[in-house]
Nucleic acid binder design. Structure first.
Lengths: 155, 155
DNA sequence: GCTCGAGTACTCGGATACATGCTGTCCGAGTTCGCTGGG
DNA sequence: CCCAGCGAACTCGGACAGCATGTATCCGAGTACTCGAGC
């Protein structure tokens, strides 16, 4: 029960893209910025492209770009894109094992319902926060510092 | 990002123990009831013992028992006992990589804060529900059916 | 008939293998930029 | 001086290994019950 690193990477990349503005950022740039394995980072960013969160432009000067405004990218979007649409808790209906079918089982499993209630609270909270909120919550000047850091990187 | 099966097993076992009352239930009984691998199920139940949720009595006629009243066993207890105390989202502070230390980093990471907020909502919802709530939410007669099912098993 | 004892069967407990999925890496297809030659 | 064409470098994209965690299993230590012999 541990969320993959890709989520942290993806969120920081989205936040960086929001800070930098319109210019495409290549995988290698992100990998250098955060000291991450370039090939695997690219794999995760491609998942964000498939989910419609990022757009990718090939060729020299290409890279990744936010597919839509930061206000319209929720943390839920990023998490479900990188971790899959599956739920944390998967009910295998063990209550029905070893016993003949019963009309009682038409009702949803109480254990699953309880677990799903908690999971729903998690997803709701994730969906309520956007990349724009991350931008707003960052300390003042953070965007400028990242832009400078990025510019120095190109040199 | 998938919760282990042990959580589902553990919750159903706790619920069953609450239904059955005071009599200890051995691993083999649970395994037969739910058609689960006995050895592995035992391993998971032992984790619940270590967490102080169940008590175990060795010897013939032994088995597992709830360590305290169902009202005092929350889903959070069971989940953290079986999945470990670690958090879903682990911040590795990649924001600090590849750049000299800065006073900005004294502030908590915004990405981690956002993720933790969602995770806190999840844990809060888990802590708000108890095994007693599962008992109350079950359809009427479920406890009696389980008792009968268990009695038939002993035969 | 009652008590004591050893034996037996059953239980938990921890140490040991296997499988799935996350992590990490590689090479190939396509596109853009820059340079060069000609008009 | 301007333009077209070619080459090269850079980019993404998907297919291929390695490792860690979760899953599954086995054997050993300890305890309660049971049966039998002795009193």
């Amino acid at each position: 029960m541990r969320i993959g690193e890709g989520v942290e990477w993806g969120l920081h990349c989205c936040l960086t893209l929001a800070w930098l503005g319109e210019q495409p950022v290549a995988t290698a740039k992100f990998a250098t910025l955060f000291e991450l394995p370039p090939a695997y980072l690219k794999k995760r960013l491609q998942a964000l492209v498939r989910a419609g969160i990022l757009t990718s432009t090939p060729g020299a000067g290409g890279g990744f770009l936010l597919a839509r405004a930061p206000e319209r990218i929720t943390l839920m979007d990023v998490v479900s894109a990188l971790e899959g649409p599956d739920e944390l808790f998967r009910c295998t209906e063990i209550r029905q094992n070893g016993v003949e079918p019963s009309p009682e089982f038409a009702l949803p499993c109480g254990v699953a319902t309880a677990m799903r209630r908690a999971e729903l609270a998690w997803r709701r909270e994730l969906a309520a926060q956007t990349v724009a909120d991350l931008v707003a919550a960052a300390p003042p000047g953070a965007a400028a510092r990242m832009r400078q850091r990025y510019a120095r990187l190109v040199t």
